[in-house]
Design a protein around this nucleic acid. Structure first.
Length: 113
DNA sequence: TAATTGACGGGCA
DNA sequence: GTGCCCGCCAATT
């Protein structure tokens, strides 16, 4: 693989990590939202991939579309517990995104925020 | 090179 | 709410 392509992918991971790390305590986000915030709207799956392979990230603050927990097994419960510990309220199996979704600061969104 | 996997997202019945 | 399908993309086998 050529260096340019390798660098692009590394850049993508870095952006994902930055976006994930930007989610504050008590707030949540989604794979798709992270991907969009990082500039890769079609790479939601890669966000999950990075999340799974990286350490030191607030992984529990990242949910699926609609605030749904996409993990399986004991991790499902752990994520839920961690979020509740941060004051994030659940609505059945999902997080109340209306209240807890973190909106990334849209800097120059074309013209005006 | 091809096939499979994975913490996804959206549309439709 | 549930189940099924397709599009998406990097990593792994």
């Amino acid at each position: 693989m050529c260096p340019a392509q390798s660098r692009r992918k590394l850049d993508m991971r870095l952006r994902f990590i930055a976006a994930i790390g930007a989610v504050p305590h008590g707030k949540v986000s989604s794979y798709g939202a992270i991907a969009r915030a990082a500039g890769f709207p079609a790479s939601a799956r890669q966000v999950a991939w990075v999340l799974h392979r990286s350490f030191g990230l607030p992984w529990h603050r990242i949910l699926g579309s609609g605030g749904e927990i996409k993990l399986r097994g004991h991790s499902d419960l752990e994520q839920r517990l961690r979020l509740q510990a941060e004051g994030v309220a659940f609505r059945g199996r999902r997080v109340d995104m209306k209240k807890h979704e973190f909106r990334f600061p849209k800097r120059n969104l074309k013209k005006a925020g």
